[in-house]
Computed example of a mutant assay.
Amino acid sequence: MTPSLTLVRRLRASPAQVFAAWIRAETLATWFGPHHTRVEDAELDVRPGGRFRVVLREDNGERHEVGGTYTEVAAGEGLAFTWAWHSTPERQSRVSVRLRPVAEGTELTLVHDRFADEATATRHRRGWTESLERLDALFGGGAQHDGSRETTR
């Protein structure tokens, strides 16, 4: 079994609003990536078989490019896509984002699996955690997470 991670967040926004934040390049650019990065470029062709590419620039000037192919797209419900860094295209993993309406807004469950090793999963946990913090801030903050459901396997 390859390493994986699961993050669960409750966001104060509707599933449609959260879904839109994932599929609109201009919105994605406001929250995607760890705290010390900014999105320099984002190209999203959000449909099954469509591709995405995101270029991140760190505060220190380092550039990172990630991309993949959408395998599932369900408006307001979630999406799934492959994930590979430009520098290591042979290390393809998979991301699934599920959205569920709850009284406070939306419960988002992100599963990233098929990592090459545990160290890679740990680095991605930090990146996704900080990205979801930024996504939460986009909707006014106050997200809750269920720590018991945050796992790395």
Results as ranks from 00 to 15, higher is better:
Thr2Met: 08
Leu7His: 04
Val8Leu: 12
Arg10Asp: 14
Arg12Trp: 12
Arg12Glu: 15
Ala13Ile: 11
Ser14Met: 05
Pro15Ile: 11
Ala16Met: 13
Ala16Gln: 15
Val18His: 00
Ala21Arg: 00
Trp22Arg: 10
Arg24Lys: 14
Arg24Gly: 09
Arg24Phe: 04
Thr27Ile: 14
Thr27Phe: 11
Phe32Ile: 02
Pro34Met: 01
Pro34Phe: 01
His35Ala: 05
His36Glu: 15
Val39Glu: 04
Val39Asn: 02
Val39Ala: 02
Glu40Met: 12
Asp41Ile: 09
Asp45Arg: 08
Pro48Phe: 02
Pro48Gly: 01
Gly50Met: 00
Gly50Phe: 00
Arg51His: 12
Phe52Asn: 03
Phe52Met: 08
Phe52Glu: 03
Phe52Ser: 08
Phe52Asp: 01
Val54Thr: 01
Val54Ile: 13
Val55Asn: 07
Val55Arg: 12
Val55Leu: 11
Leu56Phe: 13
Leu56Ile: 12
Arg57Tyr: 07
Arg57Pro: 05
Glu58Arg: 13
Glu58Asn: 13
Asp59Asn: 12
Asn60Arg: 12
Gly61Met: 10
Glu62Trp: 13
Arg63Thr: 12
Glu65Gln: 14
Glu65Tyr: 11
Gly67Ala: 07
Gly67Leu: 03
Gly68Gln: 11
Tyr70Asp: 02
Val73Asp: 04
Ala74Ile: 10
Ala74Tyr: 07
Gly76Met: 05
Gly78Phe: 07
Leu79Val: 11
Ala80Met: 07
Phe81Asp: 02
Trp83Gln: 07
Trp83Glu: 02
His86Asp: 13
His86Arg: 08
Ser87Gln: 11
Thr88Lys: 09
Thr88Asp: 04
Thr88Leu: 06
Pro89Lys: 05
Ser93His: 03
Val97Ser: 01
Arg100Pro: 10
Val102Tyr: 13
Ala103Ile: 00
Glu104Val: 13
Thr106Trp: 00
Leu108Ile: 02
Arg114Ala: 01
Ala116Ser: 07
Asp117Val: 06
Glu118Leu: 12
Ala119Trp: 02
Thr120Leu: 09
Ala121His: 02
His124Gly: 01
His124Glu: 03
Arg125Cys: 03
Thr129Val: 10
Thr129Glu: 15
Glu130His: 06
Glu130Asn: 08
Ser131Asp: 06
Arg134Asn: 15
Arg134Val: 06
Ala137Gln: 10
Gly142Tyr: 04
Gln144Asn: 07
Gly147Asn: 09
Ser148Leu: 12
Arg149Asn: 10
Arg149Trp: 11
